[in-house]
Simulated scan of single mutants.
Amino acid sequence: MDRLNEDVKRALKAKDKKRLSVLRGVKSSLQNEAIKEGRELQEQDALSVLNREWKQRKESLHEFENAGRDDLTEEIEKELAILSEYMPESLSEEELDRIVQETITETGASSGSDMGTVMSAVMPKVQGRADGKLVNQFVRKHLT
């Protein structure tokens, strides 16, 4: 949060309206989440909020691309570039596969009916570093 506050100040001084808008939006989302939770956010909570912001923009980007709105696509790509500075480094497919296999072993899962158990155990381990759809694909691959 300190880094975010400092970056908001820098964006203000630099008169970088786009960066300022994105950072204020993220800061607002973090504050709203803290109010909703009734406590100060932990790093994991903040990652969850950032991930939600990232996903919303990715979905918008996809919709704008499908609609042929290049002007809006450019804007969303700029926002994603700004957000990416705050996101943890993504896991490689090999790392994700290893985490999924370890979790399947830990939980004793053996069939597709154990998918929910494995997903709920894997997601906290990869929070903000892997997309849920990709995790789902890996879990499904190993359980079927």
Rank of each mutant, 00 (worst) to 15 (best):
A109L: 02
I76C: 04
D70N: 12
E33H: 02
E40Q: 12
I99V: 14
R140Q: 15
E53W: 08
A81L: 08
D7I: 06
M123W: 04
F138M: 13
Q137S: 14
L50T: 01
E53M: 11
Q42F: 07
T117R: 08
L23D: 00
T107W: 04
R3P: 04
T73M: 09
Q137C: 00
S28D: 15
L96C: 04
T73E: 14
V49P: 01
N66F: 07
I76L: 01
T144E: 14
R24K: 10
L41A: 08
S84Y: 05
N66P: 00
G132M: 14
R39Q: 05
L23Y: 11
E79C: 06
R52S: 12
W54H: 09
M115A: 12
R140Y: 15
M87A: 01
E40N: 13
Q127G: 02
S113E: 14
G25M: 10
S110T: 15
A14M: 11
S60C: 00
K17I: 12
S92V: 01
K13L: 13
S110M: 15
E75P: 02
D7S: 13
L50C: 09
Y86R: 10
L50E: 03
I76A: 03
K13R: 07
S84A: 09
T107E: 14
V139R: 03
K58S: 09
A14T: 05
G108C: 00
K125I: 02
M115Q: 09
E63T: 09
I82S: 05
K15T: 05
K58H: 08
K141S: 14
L96P: 04
M87Y: 12
A130R: 02
S28C: 09
I82L: 07
L23N: 02
V100Q: 11
V22E: 04
G128I: 03
L41M: 04
A130S: 10
P88C: 05
N32E: 15
D16F: 06
K78T: 11
K17H: 10
R129C: 01
Q127D: 00
L96W: 04
G38R: 03
L91D: 06
D70Q: 12
E63H: 09
L47H: 02
R24D: 12
A81S: 12
A109H: 01
S120M: 11
S29A: 15
L12T: 06
G116L: 14
L20F: 06
E43V: 08
L4C: 03
Q101L: 07
K125R: 15
K133C: 04
V49M: 03
H142T: 03
L96E: 01
A121V: 00
R129P: 06
V8L: 09
S113A: 14
S60Y: 09
L20V: 03
K9G: 01
K141W: 08
N51F: 07
D45Y: 06
E40W: 00
D70K: 00
L134S: 07
E6H: 04
M1S: 11
